[in-house]
Design a protein around this nucleic acid. Structure first.
Length: 277
DNA sequence: ATACCGACCTGTCAGC
DNA sequence: TGCTGACAGGTCGGTA
C-alpha cells in the first residue's frame, strides 16, 4: 500500500494518538515472517517503554522509545531503543479501542497506558516489525530534502532505467511505484530512459517534480489509504490527482493521448507517450 | 558492483 | 455462481 506520503500520514496520525503513552503489554501472532527481530525480543524491548515520538524514515515508521527512570536525553550506555514498522504492501497500523473487533490478519497488539491499543494488521504479510538500539537512518537518501547536486550524483553512470533507479531504496528511500510514475510524468521523462544518460536539466526537473508530487500527496493524506489509523481516520485523496498511475488507456489530462502501460524492472509502469520524452 | 528475476503472501477483480 | 488467472502501492536473496 504505502509509499512515502502514506507512511508519513500514518506516522503522524499514530504520533498524535499515542505519544507520551507507555506500552503496558504486547501480544504477537505466531506468523514469524512478520518479524525481523524475534517476537520475544520485540515484547521485551516494548513492554514498559514509553513512546516519545512516532515519525517516518523512508517507508519505515519509527517509534522512539524511552524507559522509566531513563529520560529522553539518552545517557551513555543506555541509548533509547526504536520500534520499526514497515507496512509492506498491505500493512496497517491502527489505534483502536479494546472493544473494537480485532480484524483478520492482526499480527501484533500493543496495549497502551491511555487505554487504547496499537494494532498491526497485514493481510499479505509483506510488512515487518523490529526493534533496534541504533538510530535507524534508512537505506538511502531522503527525497524531500536531498539537494540538486546530491540528486544528480545518485544517477551518474547508472545503466538502469530511471524508473527502476527511482524505486531503488538504497539510492532514494520512500519512492514507490505510484510516485515514481507520477514524478516522471510531471518531469516529462520516459520511464525507460537510462538513468545515467539524463541531462542535468532533466534530473533537476525530476527532483522538483518528485518533491512537488510527494508534498501534494502528503497534504491530501496519501493515495487511497483508507481506515489507516482508527475509526476517525481520514481517507487519502491523492488518487484523484494521479496523472498516469493506473490510468492505462485513458486520455492524458494534458494532451488527451491514451496513457500507456509497460513493464519496467518487473513493475507496472504508466506514461504519456506524447508528454514524456 | 550492478542488475535482473523469482519468491514471499493473500485478496480482488475480470473473464469465462 | 464458481473457477482460474492476472494483478496489487514492497523487499529480499540468488544468479548472471
Amino acid at each position: 500500500m504505502p509509499e512515502l506520503p502514506e507512511v508519513e500520514t500514518v506516522a503522524n496520525g499514530v504520533h498524535q494518538r499515542v505519544h507520551g503513552q507507555t506500552i503496558v503489554s504486547v501480544w504477537t501472532s505466531n506468523k514469524p515472517q512478520t518479524f525481523k527481530s524475534s517476537p520475544e525480543e520485540i515484547a521485551e524491548v516494548l513492554t514498559g517503554a514509553r513512546i516519545d515520538r512516532v515519525h517516518r524514515v523512508g517507508k519505515t515508521i519509527v517509534a522512539d522509545l524511552s524507559r522509566k527512570g531513563g529520560t529522553k536525553s539518552a545517557r551513555p550506555g543506555s541509548p533509547g531503543a526504536q520500534f520499526l514498522v514497515h507496512l509492506g504492501m498491505t500493512g496497517r497500523l491502527l489505534v483502536s479501542s479494546p472493544e473494537t473487533e480485532v480484524p483478520a490478519h492482526t499480527h501484533a497488539i500493543l496495549t497502551l497506558s491511555g487505554g487504547k491499543e496499537l494494532r498491526f494488521v497485514d493481510a499479505r504479510r509483506f510488512g515487518r516489525l523490529s526493534v533496534t538500539t541504533e538510530v535507524y537512518g534508512g537505506p538511502g537518501q531522503e527525497p524531500l530534502t536531498i539537494s540538486n547536486e546530491d540528486f544528480i550524483a545518485l544517477f551518474r553512470n547508472r545503466k538502469t532505467p530511471i524508473k527502476a533507479a527511482l524505486l531503488n531504496q538504497s539510492l532514494l528511500h520512500g519512492v514507490g511505484n505510484i510516485y515514481a510514475d507520477e514524478a516522471l510524468f510531471h518531469a516529462g521523462i520516459r520511464p525507460r530512459r537510462q538513468a545515467g544518460r539524463l541531462t542535468r536539466d532533466e534530473l533537476m526537473r525530476l527532483r522538483a517534480a518528485l518533491v512537488k508530487v510527494l508534498k501534494h500527496a502528503i497534504k491530501l493524506g496519501g493515495s487511497s489509504v483508507s481506515d489507516y489509523v482508527d475509526a476517525e481516520g481520514v481517507a487519502g485523496f491523492f488518487q484523484l490527482h494521479h496523472r498516469v498511475y493506473s490510468r492505462t488507456g485513458q486520455p492524458c489530462r494534458t494532451c488527451t493521448t491514451p496513457i500507456e502501460r509497460i513493464v519496467v524492472g518487473g513493475r507496472s509502469t504508466h506514461f504519456c507517450p506524447t508528454c514524456q520524452k
